[in-house]
Amino acid sequence: MIPENRALLRRDCPGRALLDHITGKWGVLVLTSLSEGPLRFHQLRSRIDGVSDKMLTQTLRTFAGDGLVERTVLPTAPPSVSYALTDLGAEAARELEPFLRWVRTTASRQ
């Protein structure tokens, strides 16, 4: 084990909450979808097959609180909302790419 990762094993490590948010059922998929650019809620929901409105809303709120996603109200009538990765969120999405490549490769072998 890499010594720096030992801190994540401790219950009181602040990084554990962020790790939990990103690796939750929908977290990786939201980050991956938004890595291609800003999306409105319904566009994001359409891209992520199977996510409910409730879970997508919860994930986006959590990520906004973590500083990974920025929510922008667009000046339209009626108002609409766009979601985009912050610099921190884009960095997280880039770091996830090797893992996602491994998942795709492994899934194709099964």
Rank of each mutant, 00 (worst) to 15 (best):
I2V: 10
E4T: 10
E4H: 09
R6Y: 15
R6N: 13
R6S: 14
A7M: 07
A7V: 11
A7E: 11
L8Y: 14
L9N: 12
R10V: 00
D12K: 10
D12E: 15
P14M: 11
G15T: 06
G15H: 04
G15V: 02
R16H: 01
R16P: 05
L18R: 03
L18A: 02
L19M: 11
H21E: 12
T23P: 00
T23V: 05
K25N: 11
W26K: 06
W26Q: 11
W26I: 04
G27W: 02
L29T: 01
L29R: 13
L31P: 03
L31T: 07
T32S: 11
S35C: 09
P38C: 05
L39F: 04
L39D: 07
L39K: 15
Q43D: 14
L44V: 07
S46G: 13
S46M: 11
I48E: 03
G50T: 12
V51Y: 03
D53F: 11
K54I: 11
M55T: 09
L56F: 11
T57R: 14
Q58A: 15
T62A: 14
T62R: 14
T62S: 15
G65Q: 04
D66S: 14
V69E: 08
V69Y: 04
V69H: 09
R71P: 00
T76P: 12
A77H: 14
P78W: 07
P79Q: 06
V81F: 01
V81R: 06
V81N: 00
Y83E: 01
L85Y: 06
L85Q: 01
L85M: 05
L85S: 06
T86H: 02
L88W: 00
G89K: 05
A90G: 13
A90F: 01
E91W: 02
A92W: 01
A93L: 06
E95N: 03
E95Q: 11
L96I: 01
P98T: 08
F99Q: 04
R101G: 01
R101A: 09
R104P: 05
R104V: 11
T105A: 14
T106E: 08
A107Y: 15
A107H: 11
